[in-house]
Computed example of a mutant assay.
Amino acid sequence: MPPHAAEPPHATPAGPPAAPVPGGASYDERVWPGPLGWFLAVAAAGLLTIALVPVHPGLAVALGAVALVGSLTFAVLTSPRVRVQDGELTAGRARIPVALLGEARALDRDETRVALGPGLDARAYVCLRAWAGTAVRVEVRDPQDPTPYWLVSTRRPAELAAALGTRQPLDG
């Protein structure tokens, strides 16, 4: 995995925020698993408990509780936050100033599938969660950044694209 996949080269360290998004637009979403994901986390812990009851009931309950806490913690920790605030787009741990972004396009399920398959550029930054079937593709217009675009999972692609808006080309 290229070094920029986790933290793209244009990502900014914590510090003063960039200029606000024109019109004061903002967006904030945590891409949680859907109901089926939460059910499967609980069901896996329940099945482990049931499977271990014949071995030792006390151990079964203890390991089942540990499995439940572990699976729910994993679901929470792997749910990225997607945010447009204070002039920055944040997707998971990566951030980029909105001023360096171009056109943002909301993708439906079919367009997302194509964008992640045959249409994917290997240099793109992808913040994907399989449980969110839709996404937004936003062009990166930083001439020093080899990343051509970001592909970000979201359950509300039209709202995220609207918060990012359409930018004019960078000067220079």
Rank of each mutant, 00 (worst) to 15 (best):
L72N: 05
P118W: 15
V66W: 05
L120M: 12
P97F: 07
A106P: 02
R109K: 09
R95H: 11
G87L: 08
S153Q: 13
R93K: 14
A130D: 15
W131F: 10
V152N: 05
R109G: 11
A130C: 14
L89T: 10
D121P: 00
G64P: 06
V126H: 01
L63R: 01
A91P: 09
V152P: 03
E159T: 07
D86H: 13
A162Y: 09
A41V: 08
R83G: 08
P143H: 13
A43C: 02
V55W: 13
A51Q: 03
V66F: 11
H56V: 06
R113V: 11
V69S: 13
P148Q: 00
L40D: 04
Q85K: 15
T134S: 05
A124E: 00
V66R: 01
A115H: 10
D108F: 01
L72D: 03
E111I: 12
R95Y: 04
L48K: 02
V55N: 08
S71H: 07
P148M: 09
V76E: 04
T147E: 15
R123S: 03
G165L: 05
L160S: 00
H56P: 09
A45L: 10
V82L: 12
A106F: 00
V82G: 01
G64T: 07
R156L: 15
I96V: 14
A67I: 06
I96F: 14
V61I: 13
L59W: 04
G119W: 12
A124F: 02
A67S: 10
G87R: 05
R156K: 13
A60W: 05
R113F: 07
T112Y: 05
E88I: 05
T166Y: 06
P146K: 11
T78S: 15
R81Y: 10
R129H: 09
V138W: 03
V152H: 04
T112E: 06
T147R: 07
A67F: 12
V82N: 00
L120F: 11
P97L: 08
G117S: 04
Y149M: 00
I96C: 10
G165K: 02
V152E: 10
E111G: 07
P157F: 02
A44L: 13
V138Q: 02
G64R: 01
V138N: 02
G92N: 03
L47Q: 03
S79M: 07
V98A: 05
V126K: 01
V114C: 10
G117D: 12
Q144I: 11
A65V: 12
F74A: 15
T73D: 07
G133E: 01
V152W: 06
P80Q: 11
V66Y: 03
V66D: 08
R109P: 15
Y125F: 13
